[in-house]
Design a binder for these strands. Structure first.
Lengths: 356, 356
DNA sequence: TATAAATCCGTGTGCGTACACAGTAATAAT
DNA sequence: ATTATTACTGTGTACGCACACGGATTTATA
C-alpha cells in the first residue's frame, strides 16, 4: 500500500527519468518551467515507484514558516477553555521545529463585538490558517466568507457551522453525549422519580452544545418510554448563589422523589455544592467536562458521572491536521467526533494521570 | 522552562564557548577527546542557554539505525493482541523516517517453551531494545537478566514484573479496572441478587490480569457492604460450547434472582451468546476489551458495559518512549497506567470511529 | 634535543530536499 | 545572420547535525 520503498530519493527519480534533480523538484511542486516531455517522464516514474518524500529532509530544507491563529474565548485558568489552550500549547511546542507559530487570540464569549473585532484584525494580518471556536453563528459565517475570499483555510473546534467551507472539525457529538448522559442518569430509576434539569441564565445566547445535549437526553427518554419521569426545570442565576440555594431548597421541599439531576453545561459543580449543603448528595448527579471543581465533587461522590471530551486533544489534533494538510499536503478527515468519555470516582484518577 | 530559544545551533554554542563545532559535538555526545577546559566552557554555555537540538536535522544526519523487537503472543486477527499489533505497526510506519525498524516475534501464550525459544533467538540477535508482554513470569525474569547483562533495554506492555529493571510499562491498572467493573455491575442491584463469575479453564496459568481484576471487584463488594450478594462461580470449558450452554442453563434453573454476570478475561462474547440464546439478556453483563464479537453484543444490548484499555495506544506509546529515551536521549516516565475506558451501546460508535 | 606517542581540536563532507541562479537550447524579432 | 526573448534544465548552496579525518599541540620517551 503505502509502505513500499521510502528510500527512494529525488536523485534516484531524476536518474530513472533521465533528468536533473531540479526538474523533478519542479514537477513535484508543479511550479512550471518544465517541458511536456520531461514532466511526462518524471510523472511516470513517480507513479511507478510511489514516491513519498523524506519529510525530515523537507522540513530541514524548507525555510517557509507558517503562522496559525487560534481564536477562542477568554477564560479563567480552571475553565474548560484552559484545557483547550493547553492542547494548543503542546502542539505549538511540538511543531515548532516545523517552523510553525501559533498566535492565540481571545474574545469575550458574551459579547459578539469582541469577536468581530478580533476577526477583523486577524484577517488583516493574513495568517496561513485560522482555528476557531464558532460561538457566534452569524458573525462566524461572515468571518468565514472573508477568509474564503482571502483563501485562508480555517478549522472549527468545539462546535461547527456546517454551511461553511471549513477544513476540519474536532468536537463532541453533543446530541449523542446527551443521550449517553440519559442512560447513565435514568437507568434503573424508579418510575415515579423526578429529575432536575438545571439551567443557568446568561446574557448571551444559549449555546448550541447544551441545546443539542438536551435534545439527545430527551430523545433517550422518548425511545425508552420513560415519559412517566417528571422533569423539573430549575433556573439558576449566574451570580447570586444564595438565591440559587434557596431556589433549590424550595424545589426539594415542594417535591418528593427527586432522585436525579443534570446540567448540560460544565457548571455542575455549583449544583453539587448546593446539593451537598442541602444534604441531598444521594441524588444521582451528572455533568459535563473535567473542571477542577467538577472533579473534586466527583471524587467526593457527590457527582455520579462526568462526561468528558478531551478538549486538549481536540486542540492538538486540529493543529496537527493543519500541518498535515498545509505543510505535508496530505488529505485529512473533515468531521471528527471525539469519544464520549465516561468518568466516575473510580476511574478518574488513571484518566487524569494519563499523559501521552 | 523548556521552550526558550530553540533557534540556537551547535554553531552558536561553539562561538559562545570559543571552540569549534566539532568540540561542542564531542561534549554533547560525550565521546572524549576534549580537554577539561574546553568541556567546562561548553558545558557552561550549554546550561546557560538550555540547548535543545534540532531533531529534524539530527535524524537527517544520523545514519544510525535502531532495531526494536516486539515480543507478543501469537493470535487471531480479531484477538486482543491484534489491536496491540496494530499499534506497533502504526508506530513502525511513523518512526520509519527516524531509521528504526520493528521486528515482531510471537510465542504461544499457553506454552512457555515457545517463549523461551524466542527469547534466546532475540538475545542472540542483539537488538537495540526489546518490548514484550511478560505472560510467563519466571521465564521473563530469566530473560530480563540476560538482557541486562547484554545492556539491552526492555519495556513491558500489558502487564509488568516490578522486580526487573524495565524502561517503561504501559497497561491498565487491573485491580482498579475490576473495581470499576464492580460499581457498574452492582450499583442499585437489589440486595438479594446473585452474580455469576465466569471463569474459563485453560491449560496455562491463570493470568495476573484476571486475578487482579477479580481482587478489585471483590474489594468493591467489601468496601460497600455488599456481602449479601451471592457470587456464583461458573467454570466454562474452552472448547465444548454445548456443554457450556448446558452448564449455564442448569445454573439458571437451580438459582433465582441472577441479575448480573461478569468475566474477567476478554471472552465475554461467549457468555453473551449463551445468555441471549437462553433468553437471559436482561442479566446485566460486563466484560473486558473491544473484540469484534464483544462490540457486537454491546451494540445489541446484551452486554451492558465493556471496559477497554486502548491496546493499540499502549503499543504505540511504548515504541515512542523507546525512541524518546534511546534516540532523543530524554527521560521517560516508567509506569504508565492507561485510562479505564467505559463503553456502552450509546458511546461505542464515536469511540471506535475516533482516529487520532 | 629529537622523536614518538598521546591528546586535543577544526575542517569538511554527507543526509534529502528546496530553491536561486546560471547556463543551454529553442524560438522570435530585428 | 545576429541579437533578443523565451523556455527549459542542471548545478550549487543552505538547512543543522553527526562524524571521519587529519592537523596541531602537548606530553612522554629515548
Amino acid at each position: 500500500m503505502k509502505e513500499s520503498n521510502s528510500k527512494i530519493r529525488i536523485k534516484d527519480i531524476a536518474e530513472l527519468a533521465g533528468v536533473s534533480e531540479g526538474t523533478v523538484d519542479r514537477v513535484l511542486h508543479n511550479r512550471g518551467e518544465v517541458s511536456a516531455k520531461s514532466r511526462e517522464m518524471v510523472e511516470k516514474v513517480l507513479t511507478e515507484i510511489n514516491y513519498s518524500p523524506n519529510l525530515i529532509a523537507r522540513s530541514l530544507a524548507s525555510k517557509k514558516s507558517y503562522r496559525f491563529i487560534c481564536l477562542i474565548p477568554e477564560h479563567a485558568k480552571t475553565d474548560y477553555w484552559a484545557n483547550v489552550e493547553r492542547g494548543f500549547d503542546q502542539a505549538a511546542a511540538e511543531f515548532l521545529q516545523y517552523n510553525i507559530v501559533l498566535d492565540k487570540w481571545y474574545f469575550n464569549q458574551f459579547d459578539a463585538t469582541t469577536f468581530i473585532a478580533a476577526c477583523e484584525e486577524i484577517s488583516d494580518s493574513l495568517p496561513d490558517a485560522v482555528l476557531m471556536a464558532p460561538i457566534f453563528r452569524d458573525e462566524t459565517l461572515q468571518f468565514a466568507k472573508i477568509l474564503k475570499e482571502k483563501s485562508i483555510p480555517f478549522s472549527f473546534i468545539d462546535s461547527m457551522i456546517e454551511e461553511t467551507d471549513f477544513l476540519t472539525y474536532y468536537g463532541q457529538n453533543s446530541f449523542q453525549s446527551g443521550y449517553v448522559a440519559a442512560r447513565l442518569l435514568l437507568e434503573d430509576l424508579p418510575a415515579d422519580s423526578k429529575v432536575i434539569f438545571l439551567r443557568t441564565q446568561r446574557k448571551g445566547a444559549v449555546s448550541n452544545q447544551t441545546l443539542a445535549r438536551k435534545s439527545g437526553f430527551l430523545k433517550y427518554i422518548e425511545e425508552h418510554g420513560l415519559q412517566s419521569l417528571e422533569l423539573i426545570n430549575v433556573e439558576m442565576n449566574d451570580k447570586d448563589e444564595t438565591a440559587n440555594r434557596n431556589t433549590l431548597a424550595e424545589v426539594f421541599e415542594s417535591q418528593e422523589n427527586i432522585r436525579a439531576a443534570i446540567t448540560f453545561n460544565s457548571k455542575v459543580f455549583r449544583l453539587a455544592l448546593h446539593l451537598q449543603e442541602l444534604n441531598h448528595s444521594d441524588v444521582r448527579l451528572i455533568g459535563y467536562d473535567l473542571l477542577n471543581e467538577n472533579v473534586k465533587y466527583l471524587q467526593q461522590g457527590v457527582i455520579s458521572f462526568l462526561i468528558a471530551q478531551r478538549p486538549d486533544k481536540q486542540a492538538y489534533l486540529s493543529v496537527r491536521d493543519l500541518c498535515t494538510e498545509l505543510i505535508f499536503k496530505q488529505k485529512v478527515n473533515k468531521v471528527n467526533y471525539m469519544p464520549i468519555d465516561i468518568l466516575m470516582k473510580e476511574n478518574i484518577e488513571d484518566y487524569l494521570h494519563f499523559k501521552e
